[in-house]
């Protein structure tokens, strides 16, 4: 069970760690001050969440959080490609933030019932914080999605570009069946279904 659990925690933590760093690249460059602050704050939240997960990994026998975060080689990271993509224009960053955080909120919702207690406890805490991320994403997507011809076409273009990458968020773990049968996590397939349903709303 320990390998399966570690793989899952690494995956979640690395996604947050990398996207947190991408978000932080908006610090000082946001299209307006409020968005600069928003992306910087979300960066801080994401790095904080990854730190809590790396700390959990240390208790499972892995190295110190800073060592894990900053000294691994590229092929030792478990994140999806989607979170690595360069920020590009603001429209892409916004669409990625929307797609990722919608999935992330659902993922932690599922983890509330995890049989691994530390993960369930952390999920309860993180869930509350993620509400602000999804409120932010939904507000701006609605605003720009009903804005001008330019804002609508930019969002659409970024969405078309993002969707295939976004599927990478749900890549099943090599230990998927074990994670599900042990009650650690409900599984990527179930998460993707919930995510698709949410996006249709």
């Amino acid at each position: 069970m320990s390998d399966a659990l570690k793989e899952l925690i690494y995956k979640i933590a690395d996604d947050q760690f990398i996207l947190g760093h991408r978000n932080s690249e908006w610090t000082g460059f946001g299209p307006m001050l409020e968005e600069d602050i928003a992306f910087s704050s979300m960066a801080q939240d994401k790095i904080g969440h990854s730190f809590a997960l790396y700390t959990m990994l240390r208790e499972l026998g892995e190295q110190d959080p800073d060592t894990v975060a900053f000294t691994r080689n590229a092929n030792q990271f478990h994140n999806c490609i989607f979170v690595e993509l360069p920020n590009g224009e603001y429209d892409f960053s916004l669409v990625r933030h929307f797609l990722f955080d919608t999935a992330e909120a659902l993922r932690f919702e599922m983890l509330l019932n995890s049989s691994y207690e530390p993960l369930a406890l952390l999920a309860k805490k993180i869930r509350g914080e993620l509400r602000y991320h999804t409120i932010h994403a939904n507000t701006f997507l609605k605003k720009l999605g009903s804005g001008t011809e330019e804002s609508i076409s930019r969002l659409q273009k970024s969405l078309d570009y993002s969707l295939p990458y976004a599927m990478g968020m749900f890549e099943p773990s090599p230990y998927e069946s074990e994670l599900i049968s042990e009650g650690i996590f409900g599984g990527e397939e179930k998460l993707r279904e919930q995510w698709t349903k949410k996006l249709r709303k």
């Binding site: 409020e34 928003a38 979300m42 801080q44 914080e129 602000y132 932010h136």
Partner: peptide, 13 residues
């Protein structure tokens, strides 16, 4: 509500 994020993680503007 101007921004759900503020000068620190625990404040909104």
């Amino acid at each position: 509500l101007r921004n759900p994020f503020g000068p620190t993680l625990c404040r909104s503007i």
